[in-house]
Amino acid sequence: MRARTTALLALAAASAPMMTGCTGGSAAQDTPAGDVTLTVFAAASLTDAFEQIGEDFEAEHPGVTVRFNVAGSSDLVQQIIAGAPADVFASADVPTMDRAVGAGAVSGAPRPFATNVLTLVTPPDNPAGITSLADAAAEGVNLVACAPQVPCGQATAALARASGLALDPVSEESSVTDVLGKVTSGEADAGLVYVTDATRAGDAVHTVDLEHARSAVNTYPIAALAEAEHPGPADAFVEHVLGAQGQEVLGHAGFGHP
């Protein structure tokens, strides 16, 4: 019994220096000569485009590694306000970025770097024969959209107002990827997603162009953060996203220029 107690104490004692060792490691990254790991918090819809932009940026800036934390914008802003270590924040809409600004988490003014509009998608065989938003709003059609609480739901509401239609979705999802999932699985007859989601889904969906799509344009802002561990590379990353190369990658993914 005594031997076991000693072993436990030894284990506890051994783990203590290991913990301090961890914090010492991250402090070492601050030295100018060492490698820099830049942490970018990006809205989920940016995933593919930002992976590419990150690779391009790393190629241009030797010694810098870009690491992404990808989630819904409101999750990200909550994490940032709660003190998560981040250098750059790219939000899927202005109100969410404003929450970060309001909390004093942003360094300088956020800059718009991309736009996104909604489009209507159906399963590839379009079982309900939908050719317009009015068709999707008709009774008996399983339309799925985003809940008004999330950015894509706000855009959906604006689109409905501009089209003069009362949408009657069977489900209001918390994220645009959930909407897309319901369409690709064939559960929904139609879903309102961003153009970039439809581009990414490719053949898994049939896209119906919307007449009033431009009435609900979502603007994506980006900013370096006040608590950034690496302010210099953070600003450089923001410039890269706004630059010609970054904009080209975003354009390929279906994003518009702000």
């Binding site: 799925v144 809940a147 979705p169 069977v170 489900s171 209001e172 999802e173 918390s174 959930d178 559960e187």
Partner: peptide, 9 residues
């Protein structure tokens, strides 16, 4: 639930 049933008040 969120995967199979959706989300509607």
């Amino acid at each position: 639930t969120i995967t199979f049933a959706g989300s509607m008040q």
